[in-house]
């Protein structure tokens, strides 16, 4: 029961981060390897605001979201858009964007380490809370509910608004999107920026219960990648389920075997999916 609840709470936050990467990869078709660094930037903002003026991370995230949106929009327009224009095939864009964002991730790590080279330790709502006979930290619960609200809002926006539907349309088929008059470059930039904002907010939330540091981003990039590929690219429902699965498995392995093996466990699931269901849990594209 402990494992179930802790795993679910962790999975909820992972799901939000994976949604961010899914928007960037599934819609804008940019495999963003600096995704984890975006997340850590959100965490760093929360840490700095909390230690400097004891600002609640829940307030910080309201500031982080528009800043991350604007920054990611600029990155897309000035760094990635030229790559998109130049690429003749989707494969070429994938290689170019991986290289460009991989480089960007190093730059961001350097910047973050120079701002604060230590662990981002701070204590927010680190009080026990009893739920269904299990004791969890309040901050985990708050982070989970914040993630559910933001993620739920995002899903509703994608499904029930005109712009949200256009975002999904670009994810399904860029050529068909042009046929109905959707400005694909603009929607791609929007999706990339939104994905970055969601990821950074996820980082802010994660920092309330996991102690991060400037160079830990790559681990979160890997986790988000595992979730997105496990759930199926462009499939939000799949990512949510995959995120919960990852949260549960990590928690189970950490408490039953050894906390050091969580990444190994994540990687084993990932390999299993790649070998037996490369299209993801619900993937249907076989072409």
């Amino acid at each position: 029961m402990d494992i179930l609840i802790s795993g679910l709470l962790l999975g909820g936050t992972y799901a939000l981060v994976a949604m961010g990467l899914n928007l960037q990869y599934g819609v804008a078709r940019i495999m963003n390897l600096a995704n984890g660094e975006t997340l850590v930037l959100g965490a760093l903002a929360a840490f700095l605001a909390f230690t400097a003026i004891s600002l609640s991370p829940l307030v910080t995230l309201v500031i982080v979201a528009p800043l991350a949106f604007a920054a990611n929009w600029l990155v897309y327009q000035f760094l990635l858009r030229p790559l998109v224009k130049r690429a003749k095939t989707s494969g070429q864009l994938e290689v170019d964007s991986i290289l460009a964002t991989f480089g960007m991730s190093f730059a961001l790590v350097g910047i973050m380490v120079s701002i604060h080279g230590e662990y981002y330790t701070y204590s927010f709502l680190a009080r026990p809370f009893e739920i269904l006979g299990t004791t969890v930290a309040q901050n985990r619960l708050v982070a989970f509910f914040a993630a559910v609200i933001i993620g739920g809002g995002l899903v509703a926006w994608l499904n029930y608004t005109r712009t949200g539907t256009a975002v999904r349309a670009v994810s399904v088929d860029t050529e068909a999107a042009r046929l109905v008059g959707i400005n694909v470059p603009r929607v791609s930039a929007l999706a990339f920026a939104l994905g970055g904002a969601v990821t950074a907010v996820g980082g802010t939330l994660i920092s309330t219960f996991i102690t991060l540091d400037g160079s830990i981003g790559v681990i979160f990039t890997m986790k988000a990648l595992i979730i997105v590929i496990m759930g199926g690219v462009g499939d939000l429902r799949g990512s949510i389920i995959a995120a919960v699965v990852l949260g549960l498995v990590e928690t189970a392995v950490a408490s039953l075997i050894d906390p050091g093996l969580t990444l190994v466990a994540a990687y084993v699931i990932f390999l299993g999916i790649l070998l037996f269901r490369p299209q993801g849990l619900f993937g249907k594209r076989n072409a």
Binding site: T165, R168, D173, E175, V180
Partner: peptide, 18 residues
């Protein structure tokens, strides 16, 4: 050039996007 993964109604709604 239709949106294969979207529903018929969504395809029609997107038709009126412009």
């Amino acid at each position: 050039g239709i949106f294969g993964d979207l529903s018929v109604t969504e395809n029609l709604q997107l038709g009126a996007y412009c």
